[in-house]
Amino acid sequence: MSHTLSKARPIAAALAAMSLLAGTASADVTVISFGGTNQKAQAKAFYEPYAKAAGSKVVPGEYNGEQAKIKAMVEAKNVSWDVVEVESPELARGCEEGLYEKLDYGKIGPKADFVPAAVTECGIGIFVWSTILAYNSDTLKTAPTSWIDFWDLKKFPGKRGMRKGAKFTLEFALVADGVKPEEVYKTLGTKAGVERAFKKLDQIKSSIQWWEAGAQPPQLLAAGDVVMTTAYNGRIATAQKEGKTNLKIVWTNNIYDFDLWGIPVGTTKKDEAYKFIAFASKPENQAVFAGEIPYGPTNLKGTALVDKKIVPELPTAPQNMKGAFASNTQFWVEHGEDLEQRFNAWAAK
């Protein structure tokens, strides 16, 4: 008897310790974002104030948007991510396929407070971001002003950076070929339109340097590896803030889109996840975020709180919205896989 007791004691102690660990862990919320300066801004605007207000930690993590990780977790019923930052087409697809919880807006805030397009079934918009043309004013004597200039190898010799993938690349190619922004997705929906986009890309193919992570374009520009590039507006703006004032943004015909918060199905900390999302969606916190990295708030009240100096840098500023067009989520849900496959075949040749 005493023998079994002496054996059982350490086990009991270990169990107690484990339950203690689990107890503290359950209150912490794991938030996954796209990393880099975007994550740093989120830490300042959301994670740190949330930790103070809620008294529990945010465990930050990053990924590159790979939905496979979420699918694997959901299917294995072992979900360790509680809140995830997702781009709109991936979220729409994941929502249909049962990867993300259908949101209960009662736990987040009134829908009317947000930009209508930011309110979706499984995700609430965090911010509006733009893909813009950026260039290095040290290496280019004359400033480019449009996507037509981006394609002009004679007037602007040198390498160009573009995001490796069909999304945005094909849109810009069509705009450079003279398609009106409002007709880009209609054109891209036809076989001839796709041909036209790839033909246009062929013109500059040998001068393209592909990038994958949002942190790369400012580096490529600063190092002189490319003279201009497509980039996320916030990444260039933070690089400017860090002293790289030779990096400039051209807003003509930029494409804007939302990043949204989603909750993977099966997380054990759904309540904490909602608490975090509600906190991060508050106007005052979104305004702090926009101050850190100039991405536009989705909370309409947040826009009013943003520092007046920063407003012209936001994708949502009226002068930046002129000629800009929204990424068509439905189009990419539908044609994404096909066009990415086609793009891969084209790029590998």
Partner: peptide, 21 residues
């Protein structure tokens, strides 16, 4: 490498992670 140097496993990773095919 550039897209021209990608080998078969790159596409395995692409289909596993990006398109979930």
């Amino acid at each position: 490498g550039s897209p021209k140097e990608q080998m078969a496993s790159y596409f395995v990773a692409f289909y596993t992670n990006q398109t979930i095919n």
